[in-house]
Design a protein around this nucleic acid. Sequence first.
DNA 1: CATCCAGTATATA
DNA 2: TATATACTGGATG
Length: 177
Amino acid sequence: MKPKAKAEFVLLPVPTRDGKFIARYSEKGLAGLEFPSAVGLARRADRTPQRGIPTSSIRRWHRATAAALKRALAGRAPGVLPPLDVSVGTAFQQRVWSALRKIGCGQTQSYGEIAQAIGKPKAVRAVGGACGANPIPVLVPCHRVLAANRKLGGFSGGLNWKRTLLAREGVVLASGR
DNA sequence: CATCCAGTATATA
DNA sequence: TATATACTGGATG
């Protein structure tokens, strides 16, 4: 199953005490979330707050996103999430992301455990790839996946974010890296 | 301990 | 078609 080729998105800013995140919505729901470093997107989001798929749904989803994101950044369970549009991902990636959402707040799993959970115990490395391709970090907790030795591994939004998010949830990492 | 390798799904060139 | 990855466990020097 190949991901959908193209789609139109609505960008909306989510101001938090950690900076301005950018949420991306499709007609199906929340389709992406960017860390505050994406300055270009931030400006686009400011300039054209809503058009494209203007519906009251998006505003409703956005309130849920903003609330969930702030709770997640505080190290608490995000609570109710808006519908997530994962149609940009392959079937494999969607299974990985689904498994990620089952990791509880303050808990972690290894890439290998995720691979087992989706029934492909050898596709460990591919799981890493799927985590990196996760379009909705923080709310789809790719940061709770550690290497087998309980060390950090990588993080597309920057390892600092991964460390920070885990620390706020009270997760203790192996020392060194 | 340092390398290397297979196995896997994707992306990129 | 080849190579490189947010991996991991086992083999080898």
